[in-house]
Amino acid sequence: MAVISSPHLHSPAKVSGVMLQVIYALVPALLLEFWFFGWGLLLNLLLTLAAGYLFEAAMLQLRGRPLAPFLSDGSMAVTAVLLAAALPPLLPFWVPVVGMLFAIVIAKHLYGGLGYNPFNPAMVGYVVLLISFPLEMSGWVAPGGWRLHDFGLGDSLNYAFSGQLPPHITLDAITGATPLDAMRTGLGLAKTVSEVESRPLFGLFAGRGFEWVNLLVLSGGLWLIFKRIIPWHTPVGLLGGLFVTASLFHLVAPDQFAGPLFHLLSGGAMLGAFFIATDPVTCATSNRGRLIFGAGAGVLIFVIRTWGGYPDGTAFAVLLMNMAAPTIDYYTQPRVYGHGGSE
């Protein structure tokens, strides 16, 4: 006889619902990213989704799991969207595919599938690409450059699959350094922060295009917090950690260290704070733990950007904190009711 245990009631919240909400929250930012950076972004998105779907189905099949419930849980789609949002828009087609291969096959399924992966799959995929294919990963489309040069969907497709650019366009014409890149190079050449920031690339406050995209990421994240899909602790910890560290260094040496606003809004920090570090599977579990997790990631982002070998450090920072999550969990267990102490 099957024993039925209480509770007999269940909230309607479901994993797939959570995943869908996360994707919805990112849609406005993706649309704006498309506006600034062109068809390549949508192409990447399609490629990551298609590759992800294939890899997910193949791995489920290999591991003898039912396909339907896991393909519909939406977790692969979130990984695909996040990876696409993080990738430079102009890429050979195999780059997003390889990224998803590492994200889904290695980072997710070889660790046991959803819920068992210690590292954020999208960030594993991104970091593998960043380390393995630095050339492909370093060229960003200059904001709005694609419309200026009439670089349409056909041209994007052509570039992705054959590596050919239209005759009237050179790669240098439509791509350029990201603000983080430029800042890094500029400071390396002993320029001051204000000199670097005087370039038009830096937009109003943190980089043309990027600043607005990141503001939309921020509002999507706030919406998720409002809908109680993600806790506020991780983003507050991350942005707070980054803000405080950046401010301190900027106050001490404003010519050598970029300001907090630049750090918050020019790179992947916003996406990391609201959409990547908050991945429940790989984050710390308690609220206190999430604050610590976020703060650690924030500080690491600043450290890697400033002294590390890469212009942005969000992915590395999140992965490093993923490693620390079990330890954080261990030391931040909440005090259980009736176990000493009082409030």
Binding site: A13, V15, L114, P231, P280
Partner: peptide, 25 residues
């Protein structure tokens, strides 16, 4: 009852820890 949704693996979202009236994990 709303019990018909299939059981899926834990994604460690922590909703349970937030809801627990005894502060367990």
């Amino acid at each position: 009852l709303e019990r018909r949704a299939p059981v899926r693996p834990c994604i460690r979202c922590g909703s349970c820890a937030e809801a627990c009236p005894v502060s367990l994990l």
